[in-house]
Design a binder for these strands. Structure first.
Lengths: 103, 103
DNA sequence: CTAAAATATGTAAATAAAACGATGTAACAA
DNA sequence: TTGTTACATCGTTTTATTTACATATTTTAG
């Protein structure tokens, strides 16, 4: 099956690299997996369960938010995090088609 | 289509993050794309065509080599770089299944 | 053997990211 | 109100990455 090949310009490279950077941290991946596992979950649960510092957790969540990898919704005092699956799928697809043996 | 869900341990997280980090740099992505485009190519062609410094190019290639994203073969004075597609595919698949909506 | 070409590596300086602790803000409960 | 909980952000220190330049290594040509 022949796949479409995406030719990438410098701006795209910058953006793609930024998103990959956001993913490329063990703690962030762990947090993401945790959110994923629960579909939606608040910050307290994340850092208590994973035994992380509150501020560190918030900072990593911020990076994920800025990269648009997660989304939030407030419910009273709580802020629920959930994964932006379309975005993740997009990233995966981008890396996939960016380097593709079958031209 | 239901996909297999990979539960990931700390070591896997570390390894995945390392590979993603190697990918997550605009210049490295540019170099990778260039290698990809040519299937196999030497360092000279890379830095001359992309207008990069020789040592910087070598240093980024080193990072890609250590992450096992590219492979090399020597032919006389020249060292040919080519992409380790199975590895890239593996990374893509890992990210893909790591965060997967369909459980 | 010596010189030059192709590539890699060492290292210092610059820059960026991470961690840490403290403070800020919003929502709610008393 | 005031206090407390949930979360975010700020300022600083620590650590990692990137760049830049010089030097080293390997191979080949002369």
């Amino acid at each position: 099956m022949r796949k479409a090949k995406v030719r990438i310009n410098d701006e795209n490279l910058q953006v793609s690299a930024e998103i990959l950077r956001a993913l490329a941290h063990p703690l962030r991946m762990k947090i993401l997996e945790f959110i994923d596992k629960h579909k939606t979950i608040n910050v307290n649960k994340i850092y208590n369960t994973l035994k992380l510092e509150q501020s560190i957790t918030s900072q990593h969540l911020r990076i994920l938010r800025l990269a648009d990898i997660v989304q939030t919704s407030r419910e009273g005092k709580f802020i629920h995090y959930n994964i932006n699956y379309p975005k993740v799928a997009h990233v995966v697809k981008a890396v996939d088609s960016f380097l593709e043996e079958d031209k």
